[in-house]
């Protein structure tokens, strides 16, 4: 791999045995994310997004293929890989009985900081995500947006080279979503590579330098949002510029209908 790749996956496969037999969740994913990029990983529910993220972040074993993050083989050297990776998964992974400050201090200490350095880092991060006023309240009293911001902060305690965000704005109100977008941009400006999964195409369009669409465990499109739109426009001979929604629906073979003002996805 080249030295500038922050994430590189080659023929990544995950199979497991479920109640209905062997499930192929990810079927040979190849990915390359350059350092400093915001990379979007899109796909319908059950497409293999979260499974791929879990393999890349050492949380799930790899059936076959290989993955390197920040140049480290995640299967061969998981602990070394963990020092380079920050993870905020779909569920804001927080302990409701700790305060925001306690959670960040514990996380920083687990990443090897001394008690003093951990307290200092917690203070910086609480300021970064604008949670200083709530720092000493138990997390169970936080709103959804506050929890998500704290989760982001906890993924940053060790200043990771690559930050994985799995659907970071799912379930948030529009204002909280915008706040998270701002945080993501700010973190990326500091040099952190962002690997982001999302179901919100507008989010991908706003935040991502490049993106890949996964469907049925395989990558079906990859490129910058502009490239993907241009490709669809040319291939279909469209007069107007397509939206990313249309790129997504084209890539995943789904169509949509408007029904009483609601957008519904309908499988072909």
């Amino acid at each position: 791999m080249t030295s500038s790749a922050a994430v590189e996956a080659t023929q990544l496969v995950k199979t497991y045995t479920g109640r209905s037999g062997v499930v192929e969740a990810v079927r040979g994913v190849d990915l390359r994310v350059a350092a400093g990029e915001v990379f979007g990983f899109l796909g319908p529910n059950g497409a293999g997004k979260s499974t791929t993220v879990k393999m890349l972040t050492t949380l799930m074993s790899i059936t076959s293929g290989s993955a390197r993050v920040a140049g480290v083989d995640v299967a061969a050297e998981p602990d070394r890989a963990r020092t380079c990776i920050g993870v905020a998964l779909q569920e804001a992974g927080l302990d409701p009985r700790q305060t925001g400050r306690e959670l960040l201090i514990l996380q920083a200490r687990l990443f090897g900081r001394s008690a003093t350095a951990a307290a200092e880092r917690a203070k910086e991060l609480l300021a970064l995500v604008d949670l200083e006023d709530s720092a000493d309240r138990q997390i169970k009293g936080y709103s959804g947006g506050m929890k998500r911001r704290l989760d982001l902060a906890s993924a940053l305690v060790h200043e990771p080279q690559v930050l994985f965000l799995d659907e970071p704005t799912t379930g948030l109100d529009p204002a909280s979503r915008l706040t998270v977008w701002e945080e993501v941009r700010r973190i990326n400006e500091r040099g952190t590579t962002i690997f982001l999964t999302t179901q919100y195409l507008e989010e991908a369009d706003q935040l991502c330098d490049r993106l890949a669409i996964i469907d049925g465990g395989v990558i079906v499109r990859e490129g910058t949002p502009a490239e993907l739109k241009t490709e669809l426009k040319q291939r279909r001979g469209l007069l107007a510029d397509p939206t990313l929604d249309e790129v997504f629906l084209d890539a995943t073979g789904r169509t949509r209908e408007r029904n009483a003002g609601d957008v519904q996805e309908v499988s072909p």
Partner: peptide
């Protein structure tokens, strides 16, 4: 999800 957060630490 906190257990995964802890598992993601070295």
């Amino acid at each position: 999800g906190y257990f995964d957060k802890l598992r993601a630490a070295p």
